[in-house]
Design a protein around this nucleic acid. Structure first.
Length: 149
DNA sequence: GCCAACGTTGGC
DNA sequence: GCCAACGTTGGC
C-alpha cells in the first residue's frame, strides 16, 4: 500500500469530475512523461491512496483524495490513432505508457495551496517541493497523515 | 556506451 | 508563453 500525488489540470479533469464518476471511477490516462510513467508502471497498485492536486489554475494545490481501483495497466489511448495520446512507437507487446483507474474518496474542506506546502518545514522533503514538473509522485506515510490531519 | 538533443511538464 | 529539470532516445 503506497501513497501518491497525482497532478491534474482542473480544466481537463477536476476533483468534481472524479466525484461525479462515482464508485466505478475514472481512468487516469494520458501520462506521457517518463519519470511519472515509471512510478505508474512499476509501483502503483490496487488500493493505493492518491492526493489529487490541481495544477495550471488559479488555486494551485491539493484538493482531495482518491483510491486506486486496481493495478496500473497499459494506456489503451497509445494504440488508438484517433486519440491525441496516440504513440506510433508503442505496441501491445511493448507498451510505452500506463494508466490506472481511480475513484473519488474525499474533498478537503479547504485547498492546501502549493505556497503553504512550501512554507511548512514538516513538508520540506516532499517531492512536490524538491522537484517540480512531475505529474505522478510518491508521498510518504508521514506526509499523507500530516496533510490530511 | 557516451552524450547531445528532444519532448514533456508546470510555476511564474 | 518562458524556460529549467527531468528521463529517454539514437547517432556515432
Amino acid at each position: 500500500m503506497r501513497y501518491w500525488l497525482f497532478k491534474t489540470e482542473p480544466d481537463d479533469i477536476s476533483l468534481d469530475d472524479i466525484r461525479a464518476a462515482g464508485k466505478k471511477g475514472i481512468r487516469w490516462d494520458g501520462i506521457r512523461n517518463y519519470q511519472a510513467r515509471n512510478f505508474l508502471r512499476d509501483q502503483v497498485r490496487k488500493g493505493d491512496g492518491v492526493l489529487i492536486y490541481h495544477s495550471q489554475c488559479k488555486q494551485v494545490g491539493i484538493v482531495g483524495t482518491a483510491r486506486t481501483l486496481g493495478d496500473s495497466y497499459p494506456d489503451p489511448a497509445q494504440f488508438d490513432p484517433q486519440s491525441p495520446y496516440f504513440d506510433p512507437k508503442a505496441t501491445p507487446d511493448s507498451p510505452r505508457w500506463y494508466c490506472v483507474d481511480i475513484a473519488f474518496e474525499q474533498a478537503l474542506p479547504t485547498t492546501i495551496s502549493l505556497a503553504s506546502i512550501k512554507q511548512d518545514p514538516a513538508l520540506s522533503d516532499m517531492v512536490l517541493v524538491k522537484q517540480g514538473r512531475l505529474s505522478v509522485q510518491p508521498v510518504t506515510d508521514a506526509e499523507w497523515r500530516y496533510l490530511l490531519s
